[in-house]
Design a protein around this nucleic acid. Structure first.
Lengths: 252, 252
DNA sequence: GACCGCACTTGATCCAGGTCAATATTACGT
DNA sequence: ACGTAATATTGACCTGGATCAAGTGCGGTC
């Protein structure tokens, strides 16, 4: 119908009503009419290039962000010039929830690839959520999820070996991608080895060695950014062998 | 006036209005009348003995808890019989916020000493907070605080040495106790060495050795559970030397 | 297509902190 | 007061993963 060379503005302006991520994101649990009200305060932005920042630590807090496409990392700069990566954010996940308390961002966020985002002015969201109990409930749920995600991460960093950490990380990505309709066994890592290492509390060299060793062991195949998980069984075993989490999985 | 041998029921039934913790806890920012409404859904409990559990991982989520006196730890049992400690909770801090998402507790909580708590049915709190915007706001703030607390912990576990971790932990305790009107330099550790080690991702032996080494270095004095911080300067230096957090301090 | 720069890999070495084992100290029940 | 169990300290040793130091290969530029 339309010329495929022309970028459709419709695609950028997808409303919450039609968004495929609605079932992970703020609209979950809302009635049709309520989604429309939410939709009116959401600002959809032009694409964000790889490496471009979303907000910087210390900046005043105005908006929370929902990833629409692509991926982001949140991080804190260390004084020696390094970065501590705090999290990776896939479509449907919210960024900025840690800033409510002191009205200032507690970390920085930047795009790992060309991405797009929905921007939601938090004070408007707060007002709206007093009017829509199910919206309030969903915000509570998402914040609660953020908290349990972090505590899982604590478990990971607190008492797991390097290979267990990497396996857990890969399976977490796999699961989140699968939820969003992508392949659970083949995907591209949008983040660098450095980012992965920092996130998992390891050295880059260790991550690199682990990838090659896991490949030798037939657990996976890795080529640059591209990963194919071959033996989910044994990868799972690496993750589950430790904590007795009553069916909980580590990492979101 | 009253017989001192008789335990005053008044003391147990302190209402939010008179509670000294109101400035950390849910009532912060509420008008007098609104505090009274909050007060009506809060259930105050009999004292809880050391070692007694508050809730157990996997149990259905009904209430959130605010520590009134004493202290608690939250933790997850590992299958080898050990525990991973997720956090310590002082008066005015909330427990259970991670359970909202899947309506089940994601960790267990138990008292570290004889303690008392306020129990708040979460669904009633949710209803009330749609009516009281400032209550909703305070819940958002407290949850946000929980998130940034955890991300700070990630930084700590991700890239800090053992002595930096212990120093950070001690100063965090010190600051939180001072906020609550206790001494910043002298206090009792209600948790065991084991708990501290688990929380900081270290071995018990390491924690023990660190205490003695820090004592030799004149940083502090430790006798069993009792700690006196002697050289705040150098303890601070141990914490701040690493991350460039724009004035943020690690740990709550 | 040749040069450059950066991300990644691989190898060699080292050490912080874990593990194992032997006391020491305290808390607690009888 | 005593015995037992839990908790904490101390010492000796070992190892996982950090650090240091070369390579290697890919993507971008002119």
């Amino acid at each position: 119908m339309s010329d495929p060379r022309v970028i459709s503005l419709e695609k950028i302006k997808v409303a919450c009503q039609n968004c495929s991520l609605a079932s992970f994101c703020l609209p979950l649990g809302l009635k049709q009419g309520d989604i429309e009200k939410l939709d009116q305060i959401v600002k959809r932005s032009r694409p964000i290039q790889r490496g471009e920042g979303l907000f910087h630590i210390g900046e005043p807090f105005q908006n929370i962000y929902a990833v629409k496409t692509g991926s982001f990392k949140t991080f804190i700069q260390t004084e020696d010039g390094g970065e501590q990566v705090l999290g990776f954010h896939l479509p449907g996940e919210l960024i900025g929830l840690d800033a409510i308390l002191d009205n200032r961002h507690g970390c920085s966020a930047k795009a790992l690839e060309t991405s797009s985002i929905c921007k939601i002015p938090f004070n408007q969201l707060e007002v709206l959520s007093t009017q829509l109990p199910s919206l309030q409930h969903q915000i509570f749920r998402l914040m609660s999820n953020e908290i349990s995600k972090d505590t899982n991460m604590l478990m990971l960093l607190g008492n797991r070996s390097a290979d267990e950490r990497l396996a857990t990380f890969l399976l977490s990505l796999s699961r989140r991608l699968a939820q969003r309709g992508f392949s659970a066994t083949e995907f591209n890592l949008s983040m660098s080895r450095h980012d992965i290492a920092s996130y998992l509390g390891l050295a880059v060299e260790t991550v690199s060695r682990l990838f090659t060793r896991m490949q030798q062991d037939g657990l996976l195949k890795v080529d640059r950014k591209f990963v194919r998980l071959l033996d989910m069984e044994r990868l799972d075993a690496l993750c589950e062998k430790n904590p007795h989490c009553h069916g909980k999985q580590l990492l979101p």
